[in-house]
């Protein structure tokens, strides 16, 4: 077989990208405390050990609460913004939408530091709520991007048709618009949940004394004996992320197919 330069490049690229992730489950099921080859034997004891750590449980609980709340809030805000930007014309629309989308490209450390300064200045105590605030800020641009594509592929005359056939604007939204953008909403919820769940910087700055999962993982790396447990935890998180993102993409595509549109963009 002739090895093409580009193929070689692509192969190396993929190895570089995914090899660390493949190593994760390998060491998670290895029964040695030291993270090194050769592997010494199969064991599930690191997974069992997770059950005995109360701080980990608290961190998981906190992170799930933050992720669910941020996902719901940012998706609701995303629905409003996406609907407004695709359906209505208003002054300074481009500027307003640009500002909302800005956190997408803004370094997170800047968002985190400036939020911290503002919150401390206002005298707001740091808590899970302040993390949620930060996460809603960075998740909303993603939800708008997903939901805009859902709203955009919606033919405006569908709404008018329902209205014409006797429905009120509210029942038209419930009967026609909501079912047709529902796949987009589900996809938006899942993606913002995933973003929030593994977000570190904002959580680190704004969580106060409460641990979140990424912050907890980072802190555990100081203790060599804790590393295999983190590998096990990482394995679970990788699987969870893949499942969630696949579901999200499935719903996004199905939504576009159902409303008869063409696939334009998306994240996967």
């Amino acid at each position: 077989m002739k090895v093409n330069g580009f193929k070689l490049y692509a192969f190396c690229y993929l190895i570089f990208l995914y090899a660390p992730i493949i190593l994760l489950p390998m060491f998670a099921f290895n029964d040695a405390t030291v993270i090194a080859f050769p592997l010494t034997g199969f064991s599930t004891r690191w997974f069992e050990e997770m059950a005995t750590q109360p701080t980990l449980h608290l961190a998981v609980k906190n992170s799930l609460f933050i992720a669910v709340t941020s996902a719901v809030l940012s998706t609701i805000l995303g629905i409003f913004a996406a609907r407004a930007s695709t359906r209505y014309r208003f002054p300074f629309k481009a500027g307003i939408m640009g500002l909302i989308m800005l956190p997408l490209v803004l370094p997170e450390i800047i968002v985190a530091v400036s939020l911290l300064v503002v919150l401390l200045g206002l005298g707001v105590p740091l808590s899970l709520m302040t993390v949620i605030l930060g996460h809603v800020l960075i998740c909303t641009p993603f939800t708008i991007a997903i939901l805009s594509s859902a709203f955009q592929s919606l033919d405006q005359s569908l709404e008018e048709a329902a209205y014409d056939l006797g429905e009120t604007p509210a029942s038209t939204f419930r009967l026609i618009i909501l079912p047709l953008v529902m796949p987009g909403i589900i996809s938006s919820l899942l993606i913002s949940f995933t973003i929030s769940l593994d977000e570190f910087i904002i959580a680190f700055f704004l969580a106060g004394t409460q641990p979140t999962l990424p912050v907890y993982i980072f802190s555990q790396f100081r203790f060599p004996q804790a590393v295999p447990v983190i590998m096990a935890l990482g394995t679970i998180l990788v699987c969870l992320s893949i499942v969630l993102l696949s579901i999200a993409e499935y719903f996004r595509r199905r939504g576009i197919a159902r409303s008869g549109g063409k696939d334009t963009g998306g994240f996967l």
């Binding site: 033919d155 569908l158 056939l165 047709l180 159902r258």
Partner: peptide, 19 residues
Amino acid sequence: PANKRPTNMVFQSYAIFPH
């Protein structure tokens, strides 16, 4: 409003509810 008028419309895109 449109939902109270004795008219009904056939749209250029037909606007068939796809779901």
